[in-house]
Amino acid sequence: MAKRIDVSGLTAYYGTHKAIEDISMTVEPRSVTAFIGPSGCGKSTFLRTLNRMHEVTPGGRVEGKVMLDDENLYATGVDPVSVRRTVGMVFQRPNPFPTMSIFENVAAGLKLNGSYKKSELEGIVEKSLKGANLWNEVKDRLNKPGAGLSGGQQQRLCIARAIAVEPQVLLMDEPCSALDPISTLAIEDLIGELKERFTIVIVTHNMQQAARVSDRTAFFNLAGVGQPGKLIEIDETERIFSNPSVQATEDYISGRFG
């Protein structure tokens, strides 16, 4: 079910500003790929091009190809809405819908996309909450508002919401940066379980986290302020952290950078 992503020659713009330039890489299915790099180097922008969320920003546009198995996401006639159903996303800050209960939050993706029977929804919600390791904490208060949970629980709720629509790929944009170490650990464990079923791409500023959870790591960098971000290298995580082939990667990882 999980799919391979093949990016070639991808350039993304905000209006006239070129945010990332000429990125090509392969993301393997059923594995975790981590993106690391300094702020402003275009990691998040690149992540957002993988499910066509980049163009939601006013002035955002993309050149190049993103192949999901054998389909180009940017081919003419491709509906961004169906792309986003296939490639799910979890954001930096937990963002449960404030008007909805925990149950409705998890069911939101399905409910808003069509009609489901209540019994069917209950099954999916339970499965998704269990998949996000949240079921035991919330099973007695599914009708309480989602905004009443703690930050870490909210983020796992958002992950449950994202996996409820059964995507092929899960994109995570710094999913732990607003969380305490214990919640971070819970989510990292979760990522380890989820990679059995999904292709996972995670952006992180925490290099230990990248080393802990990912199978492959990509290092992004930019030449200077206002310059577009570029992919420096992508390789097995172990190799990136022990013996990278580019000097800039080693400098960044060892903290000798800038």
């Binding site: 499910n51 969320m53 939601v56 809405v81 169906s82 792309v83 986003r84 159903r85 296939t86 799910g88 996303m89 954001f91 800050r93 963002n95 819908f97 404030p98 008007t99 939101a108 993706g109 808003l112 996309n113 958002c158 919401r161 994202a162 629509v165």
Partner: peptide, 27 residues
């Protein structure tokens, strides 16, 4: 209405008009 809610809904594969109707307006 925070932009994050719109993005969360769009990222679930919900069309824009339904996002406005079911997420933005109720909020």
């Amino acid at each position: 209405v925070p932009n994050e809610l719109r993005e969360a809904s769009l990222a679930l594969g919900v069309p824009k008009w339904r996002t406005i109707l079911k997420v933005v307006l109720p909020t």
